[in-house]
Every structure is written in C-alpha cells, then in structure tokens.
C-alpha cells in the first residue's frame, strides 16, 4: 500500500510539473525601467550643436556603412535608422580552453563555443530641447550562435568602447564635437 501511495504521489508531482511547464508565462516587470537607465543614457546618447537633423541622420547612415552594416529600415521623419551586420564570433582563447577541457575530460565543450554573431543597431535622432541642438541615441544588440548553429546568447552590448567608436566616426563625418549628456 505504501508503495502505491509513493507511486501515486510521484505521478501527481510529475504531471503537475508538466502542467506548470506547459503554462509557463512571461515574468512580470520586463517593461519597467531598469535602475541603471541613467547610465545607459550616458553611454548611448550624445548631443551635437546643430539643429540640422537631416544632416545628422544622413551622416549616421554613412557611419553605419563605414562600419560595414547594412541598413534594414529607416524613417527619417522620426529620425530612425536601423541596421545589422553579421560577423565572426570565434575567440581563440575560448576555443583553446574548450579543446583542453574536451581532451582532459572527454566532454563536448567545443560545440558550445561561439561561432557567428549578428549585431543589430538602431539610431534615433531627435531635436534638442533648446531648439539649437540634435540628440543622437544609439543601441547595439547582438545574437551569438555556437558551433552547432544554435543561438547561445542574446544581449544588449554595453561596451563603452564600441559606442565611442561609433560617435568618433559620426563626429568626424559632421565636423562637430559630440557632447555627453
């Protein structure tokens, strides 16, 4: 009798957990502003002393091309340019480490190593509040595929160097200095 009870409770637990997995819903709060949104603004935004939004957005498209992005979409009336680019994501160190692990432990870490990545970017220009400037905000994201061509990572890029590189290019293109917000 005891055994039956155990089996019964076990099957109940399993079917309950199955039901729960089947109904997994989105967690709450993912449309709430994060705590570090101010830092992100500083990272992603720059201000230029010109009210000529068209000039800025044309230069943005040029800079993205210089960085070998292809333009996906744009709406100049709203100051939007979005673009993407595929690139290699192999990292010598990561691969060497994985091979060493695989040899020592007989595991299959190599297949989990990064192979390719796609970087997506959107740039938004908007008129500054003083009427004499234009604010530019850029966001980079990337999707990384591993050696077995499965998506292994989805992330927003937060590396200041990458953002700085973009703005250096933009400043050169429009002969204006970028001001941090």
């Amino acid at each position: 009798m005891k055994r039956i009870r155990v089996i019964l409770s076990l099957s109940l637990v399993i079917s309950l957990s199955l039901a729960v997995v089947g109904c997994v819903s989105a967690p709450k709060g993912f449309l709430k502003p994060g705590e570090n949104s101010l830092e992100k603004r500083q990272l992603q935004m720059r201000q230029y002393d010109t009210a000529d939004e068209t000039k800025i957005i044309t230069s943005v498209a040029g800079v993205l091309q210089d960085l070998s992005f292809t333009l996906d979409d744009s709406e100049t009336k709203l100051g939007l340019v979005s673009a993407s680019k595929k690139a290699d994501a192999k990292d010598g160190g990561q691969i060497a480490g994985a091979i060493l692990l695989d040899v020592l432990l007989g595991s299959n870490t190599l297949s989990q190593c990064d192979k390719n990545q796609m970087v997506k970017v959107s740039v938004i220009t908007s008129p500054g509040l003083d009427g004499k400037s234009t604010v530019v905000r850029v966001t980079f994201q990337r999707i990384v595929w591993n050696m077995t061509n499965q998506i292994s990572r989805l992330e927003t890029i937060n590396d200041p160097e990458i953002y700085q590189k973009f703005y250096d290019g933009l400043s050169r293109a429009i002969f204006l200095e970028a001001h941090k917000i």
Binding site: G34, S82, S122
Partner: peptide
C-alpha cells in the same frame, strides 16, 4: 521611441 529605448529596446521599424 525614446521610452522604448529607455526600456532597452532596439527600434527596428517605424512609420509616421
């Protein structure tokens, strides 16, 4: 658009 950017979104398409 700027609210979505504050919420970490990339803007892919827009049409006025």
């Amino acid at each position: 658009i700027s609210t979505m950017q504050d919420l970490d979104f990339i803007i892919e398409k827009a049409d006025l």
